[in-house]
Amino acid sequence: MKWISLAAAIMLAALPFTAHAVEPDEILDDPGLEARAREISKDLRCVVCQNQDIDSSNAGVARDLRLLVRERLVAGDTDAEVIEFVRARYGDFVLLKPPFKPGTYALWLAPAVLFLFGAGTAIVVLRNNRKRLVAAKLSDEDERMVAEILATEKGDKS
């Protein structure tokens, strides 16, 4: 359980900076750049928090990163360059949207694979059904009779 106390220590260390997510003095004058900064911030994970993006986190490090993101944008970086800048220092861990690379192929392809597997199974089910349907095909006359019987049965019930 030693890491619990450690986590507590880290949180304690981060405490003096508690603020309130994005602060007014961080906001850029250029609304276009600011909007980009907000979007980028939503894709970056706050490293001291648990599953929070830096945009909504009030930790000190998150604020620093928000300022950094804005600084890079003002300096003319593209969104991808800004994200790469942060990734180079904190690793893939800070990307809430994991990059598409060999280690995450499985993650990104999983939905499609799951869907295809499911669809394949569904098609097999439908095929089998059709086979059995053909085998058990009632003539139209039979079907009409069955429907009639069932209808009267239902009438009796209600």
Binding site: I10, V48, V61, L68, Y90
Partner: peptide, 10 residues
């Protein structure tokens, strides 16, 4: 800023 360069979290 240097803290960020070093990738510190706290």
């Amino acid at each position: 800023r240097a803290g960020i360069e070093w990738g510190i979290s706290g």
